[in-house]
Write a protein that binds this DNA or RNA. Structure first.
Lengths: 344, 344
DNA sequence: CGCGGATTGTGAATCGTTTCATTGTTGAGC
DNA sequence: GCTCAACAATGAAACGATTCACAATCCGCG
């Protein structure tokens, strides 16, 4: 309606200067009660709403942070996102949630967008190696906290879970349950978490004195239910005596997809094929066959990351970068319980 | 590093005026190739990044839209969100995803924030009746498209699914399967979708010639897995001859929670208790007992909503508001299959 | 009575970009 | 050789809020 209402209009209506309106908005104590009321009344009558862009332009600091994740449809990330949002909104910050689908091109595009918005800071789970754009962005002054991925150097904050240990736990469990051919499902390995889980799996195999070939690396790409189904289709084409008797999936969506496909094909779980997933999302325990999984403190991951970011932006000077690492925990359920097997 | 790089710095470096830099950025064809290259080089060398706030302030139109949903942890909404994001990002728009947890206070706070950001428009699933804030915001000029909720009047765009029909389909199916006492789980009824599903359920009961009391309204609040568990606890306290033999849950999270709690207590599904959920999220078919559910075109819901919003903001003048309504579809699975029952 | 200090309020400058009226420059056409 | 159009580039005004140096007013007290 004829251009939106600005401080100028409010000032005119209340019969004061724009400076005073701004004072009412930002430091009400500097204004006498009567004027304050008059201005507040004018604001209400005119339906004035601050223009955050103008505010930000002048004041320099924005009130939003960016959160960049691999897949919003993955309950793991939505739980992390909730953790982020909880602490961010408590600090009066808004969160722009960005979804890369594990694609570096989408990641690049979002980083550009976030930098143009001059967000207060960015929380990111990179889709690959740390991109140049991310390094540049940081050099130019936007604080970045790595999420679910450990910072390589000491000059950056990160919040992660010990993925190597998680992989180790999962595969150790499978080995101890008698499995000698275990498929690793997940990829690409450019995603650090996945590579680390595989490293842990290898360590477990080695420690058990098994040959490296005990670990069968599936050529899966992506970490969703559909990819899990495909992985099973691939594995089932193998010769029976070479085929795995257990699967360790890099996340629960893959595991659930595998579960569906296997039971669809009449493969019994865990008798014919054991499965261990990763993340312990809420649906894991409610699956057709309750899923064993490696639990991560999802919500706390998000909370802590947001806290680190806020700390970094608040006291830019005296900030000490920290790399927080949480411990994963193996939850054993039906999908990997030991059973008497008919053949090895 | 000593204040960020602005067009002024770029202009100085390239030996041109700021106006020219802006032209290179926004209408490269107005600039001679040589100057254009010189400016581009300067931009690259200095690592210049546009300031979107300043841009927006001057240009008037922002490049972000707000998406306000009831629960990001609900796969229904993440799928909708993906649909929104797909079409938004194709149009060069960013999405700010806001989560209300069905709380009007959170909704209000986010609406204020989005209006202050002067977003291009808002897609919202209201947590209750349309709030005054939303009406005001619209009056002041921010386009709003209702998402998963039909607009009451002709003066607004909306995208929804026929929830009444969905409720009817579900309960008709249960009645035809022989159930005579059916619990409706979901609430509060202030959420229009829920109220409509209940209306549909009532219509089905009536059409079947059953008494109104055939529908048992559970006092559930919230639409997550935990609430589903609680609902079962409530229902199981009822006297056996009054207790329901089937549950119709207002969404799949409730249904999955119910499923977990029931099977945990040894209640057989569907023999002792049939269940029908709503949304047909991906996990529904992978549940302990595959879940019957009412399917909605989630992704398309989001896509269409974003399209309507973009259309509305593009041709503000010749825009004709539309109310798009999709049809739901009942998917019958194990959780509600007819079985020989021992007692009625 | 007048001075100092506290308290309120003012208004111009500023943030970084876009826009637009204007000024130069060329070159074609007569 | 002159005019006119097309093309390039310029630079100042504007967007809306915040900030800050300063002015105005009032009060208490010596």
């Amino acid at each position: 309606m004829g251009g939106t209402i600005s401080v100028k209009d409010v000032a005119a209506r209340a019969g004061v200067s724009v400076g005073t309106v701004s004072n009412v908005l930002n430091r009400p104590d500097r204004v006498s009660p009567e004027t304050r009321d008059r201005v507040s009344a004018a604001i209400a009558e005119l339906g004035f709403v601050r223009n955050e862009s103008a505010r930000h332009l002048r004041a320099g600091s924005s009130r939003t942070v960016g959160l960049v994740v691999l897949d919003v449809a993955n309950p793991f990330f939505t739980d992390v996102a909730r953790g982020v949002e909880d602490t961010a909104s408590a600090a009066g910050l808004a969160v722009i949630l960005c979804n890369t689908d594990e694609k570096t091109t989408k990641e690049e595009a979002y980083l550009e967008l976030l930098e143009e918005q001059r967000v207060r800071g960015i929380l990111i789970t990179p889709a690959d190696a740390i991109s140049d754009r991310l390094t540049e962005l940081r050099r130019r002054g936007t604080p970045v906290v790595l999420l679910d991925r450990k910072a390589a150097a000491r000059d950056q904050c990160s919040v992660s879970v010990d993925d190597r240990k998680g992989g180790d736990l999962a595969v150790t469990h499978l080995v101890e349950s008698g499995h000698r051919r275990i498929a690793f499902v997940g990829g690409p390995l450019a995603i650090a978490q996945v590579a680390d889980r595989l490293r842990g799996a290898r360590a477990a195999v080695k420690r058990a004195g098994l040959p490296e070939t005990a670990l069968i690396i599936s050529s899966t790409v992506g970490h969703n239910v559909a990819a899990g189904r495909l992985a099973v289709q691939e594995l089932l084409t193998m010769a029976k005596r070479k085929a795995p008797t257990a699967m360790f999936c890099a996340n629960d969506l893959l595991a659930l997809g595998a579960l569906q496909e296997l039971s669809h094909r009449g493969v019994r779980i865990p008798a014919d094929m054991a499965i261990v997933g990763y993340d312990d999302i809420d649906f894991a325990s409610a699956a057709m066959v309750p899923l064993s999984s490696v639990r991560q403190p999802r919500h706390q991951l998000g909370r802590t990351a947001a806290e680190l970011l806020i700390e970094e932006t608040d006291k830019a000077a005296g900030h000490k970068h920290r790399q927080v690492v949480f411990e994963p925990e193996l939850i054993v359920r039906e999908s990997s319980r030991r059973v008497r097997r008919t053949s090895s």
